[in-house]
């Protein structure tokens, strides 16, 4: 009985935790790039919305799909793309940050398995207080996500919109 209660407490605590994180940080349009033959690394992108009244500073990421999942950003230095690990990605209170190709992204260095289109990748974003935010990213073939959507012209806006998940 005692065990049952403690098990229940644990589940309840987990549910509460999940609820709290779902409330404060929402990830939408989360995608991970399907593996390219010959390439051992990939990346994940998403739009993060902070619905809370305080800034959220993400400092790390966990995932089973890569040996080294990291938060990364690019610095465009006169046309040279210098990709670097970020100490943090701050999502301002009530604000949004977009992780997209060529910008901020979750780096998946050293994939443990090939990422196949149609699959899913579980990521856990972690803020400086240790709060965890689970994210499910759909694995997509980036060849269909180039922004060159038709013969008529380039797609307006950034290429994270209008995906079918």
């Amino acid at each position: 009985m005692k065990q049952l209660i403690s098990a229940c407490l644990l589940v309840c605590a987990n549910l509460a935790g999940a609820y709290a994180s779902a409330q404060t940080l929402e990830a939408t349009d989360a995608i991970a790039r399907a593996s390219i033959p010959g390439a051992p690394n990939s990346a994940a992108f998403m739009t993060l919305s902070n619905t809370s009244a305080s800034d959220i500073s993400l400092v790390s990421v966990k995932s089973d799909v890569a040996k080294r999942p990291e938060l990364h950003g690019h610095i465009n230095d006169n046309g040279v793309m210098r990709m670097r690990q970020r100490e943090s990605i701050v999502i301002p209170a009530g604000g949004q940050v977009v992780l997209k190709p060529g910008g901020l992204h979750v780096m998946l260095l050293g994939l443990t398995d090939r990422l196949m289109p149609g699959g899913q990748v579980q990521l856990t974003l972690i803020d400086e207080a240790g709060q965890e935010y689970p994210v499910t990213a759909e694995v997509v073939d980036m060849r269909q996500h180039t922004g060159v959507s038709s013969k008529q012209g380039a797609m307006k806006g950034h290429n994270m919109k209008g995906h079918n998940h």
Binding site: I36, G38, P40, N41, P101, M107, M142, R143, V148
Partner: peptide, 25 residues
Amino acid sequence: YTYCPDVCPTTLAYLAQVLDVYETQ
């Protein structure tokens, strides 16, 4: 380079489609 996690795949996927459109036109 092939270990390039973000920029190169993005560039190559984009380039392939741009070349395709160019060829068609």
